[in-house]
Design a protein around this nucleic acid. Structure first.
Length: 274
DNA sequence: GCCACTGTTAGCAT
DNA sequence: CATGCTAACAGTGG
């Protein structure tokens, strides 16, 4: 599932593959995938050159001035760099081909929850998908981190998953960060002490950075470009480890549901605050 | 075969 | 407003 480290990994791979190339054509086979974008808007991309590929939260941004392409992979979206002569894999919904290149970029999404949007480069920061995102967890300072999260009423797990509070944290890294910081997922966000906010921020940063360095976590569907799997799934301490021993204290990892999401934690290391 | 489960976000309900 | 629940969809595993 692409969260921040996975989207960052994909952005890096994409950067190497397409920056500097001139777009020959952009074709979409599933109009439902297009958000605030008319199929004919894609015609404007032909003849433009890829200037940059970047990430904001879990959103991937491809800049080809004067237009930009935004992608959200949701759970099962993925990219492949394929020879243009090969048949399209099942569930391929979008293709970007390039001038003077046998390779093309293909987007597929089994569950069709993902979306893409084509808009002017200058409108990216102000568009709905980007504007309502909170700060990047790797950029935010300690004071703002504590202030933003403490202002929330809900449970720590739900607060970490709220993209308006922090951008890019998903189910896996929320659980891993809470375990590293020894905080119970159901703890009310308003009840943490300053040192606990410090622990949580430090844990989250360390885990996200390590996951990026490892190329993300391939738990189920996530692959980087060309099917490459990540390496961080072998270092998960709680996610997906229900019933197994906590690697810190030996207690059995528990699975509960928080806000409709599977949540893994160690009942011994992560005590609930009243 | 059937059903529960998977994870993200929009949209609706509370 | 804030917080919580669920539909959107398709495939996998029990």
């Amino acid at each position: 599932m692409p969260e921040l480290p996975e989207v960052e990994t994909i952005a890096a791979a994409l950067r190497a593959a397409i920056v500097g190339r001139e777009i020959a054509a952009a074709r979409c086979f599933l109009p439902k995938l297009l958000r605030a974008t008319e199929p004919r808007d894609l015609d404007d991309l032909a003849g433009t050159r890829i200037l940059a590929v970047r990430r904001r939260g879990k959103v991937l941004i491809i800049e080809a001035p004067p237009r930009a392409l935004l992608f959200h992979l949701k759970m099962t979206g993925r990219f492949d760099w394929e020879n243009a002569g090969l048949p399209l894999a099942k569930h391929t919904h979008f293709v970007l081909s390039f001038a003077g290149s046998d390779g093309e970029l293909r987007f597929r999404d089994v569950r069709k929850f993902g979306f893409l949007r084509c808009l002017p480069c200058g409108a990216v920061e102000a568009c709905d998908e980007i504007r309502r995102l909170g700060p990047e967890p790797l950029d935010i300072g300690p004071e703002e981190f504590a202030a933003r999260l403490a202002a929330r009423k809900g449970r720590l797990k739900s607060v970490l998953l709220d993209q308006r509070v922090l951008a890019g944290v998903g189910n896996i890294y929320a659980d891993e960060a809470l375990h590293a910081a020894r905080l119970h997922p159901l703890t009310a966000a308003g009840r943490l002490r300053p040192d606990e906010w410090g622990r949580l921020r430090a844990s989250l940063r360390r885990i996200l950075a390590a996951a990026i360095a490892a190329g993300g976590s391939s738990v189920r569907d996530y692959r980087s470009i060309g099917g490459e799997i990540g390496g961080f799934q072998t270092r998960h301490k709680v996610y997906g480890r229900e019933g197994k021993k906590c690697l810190r204290c030996g207690e059995r990892i528990r699975r509960i549901v928080v806000g409709g999401r599977a949540t893994f934690y160690c009942p011994s290391c992560q005590r609930k605050k009243r």
